[in-house]
Amino acid sequence: MCAICGCDGEAKPSVLDLQTGRRTAIELPAHEHVHADGTRHSHPPEHQHGHPHDHDHGHNLDHGHDHAHQHGTTVALEARILAKNDALAQQNRGWFLGREILALNLVSAPGAGKTTLLERTIRDLRDELPLYVLEGDQATANDGERIRAAGAAVVQINTGTGCHLDATMVARGLAELKPPPGSVVLIENIGNLVCPALFDLGERAKVAIFSVTEGEDKPLKYPHMFRATDLVIFNKIDLLPHLDFDLARAEANARAVNSEIALLRVSARTGEGLDSWYEWLRREWVAAREATFA
């Protein structure tokens, strides 16, 4: 996935291992071409196309066509635009499955309390569940530091100018984080309700954190995210007495977009309702392990 186009300034994507302090740039995968005769060749991802193709290749007649059928000068593809990211996400999914790892993709608008919820979860469950975190932000390791202070191993992924995590970034992050078999990997996506909805990372479930300081109509305004989400956690419910927020209406809106969505109400600050989130997490953890040999 060429998610990094457009950021050829200084802001390159990178992963930072908070345990060792080592920062590694995320290199784009080599760009591979398949010729009509089945010959494959690749080159680095710098966009210097128009290179001469002067290599000779024999014309093997029973070559595969790589799902491209040529009719005159039109080549039918009928491929999903996100096919590459989807394929890499499936690779991640298999990686998690083979290791009995529960992977969750945490999404929200900026400031909904994803990191605070994670900090609290780590403090409450670190003796019970092996929690590992991939922390996504455009820049800074601030959130990664907070997670580490709470007591979990964490790798910070900085996307540079990217507005979402993609499957490649997660794969690089995992290579650095090295979560052990049977662990829980919490992937904190970029605070953004638009772009992360389209990019599968290979997670078992998407969890949206929805602060009650936002509008009740967020699910209607950002239907793609709520359609793709398995669980919505309404956060900051300790503030409800000070707000005009109609929680029942917000829940109805979430159900209007996604009739199967699960809903929880918590305050990561006071701890209210967190038991229901922990119950959900434990259930999913067991389900992820059972899925491996299903």
Partner: peptide, 21 residues
């Protein structure tokens, strides 16, 4: 803006399928 990432994927797929043409 996810459209930029999508456009990159579109151009990449088109170029791959074009086999140098």
């Amino acid at each position: 803006m996810h459209e930029l990432a999508l456009t990159c994927a579109i151009v990449e797929s088109a170029e791959d399928a074009a086999s140098g043409r």
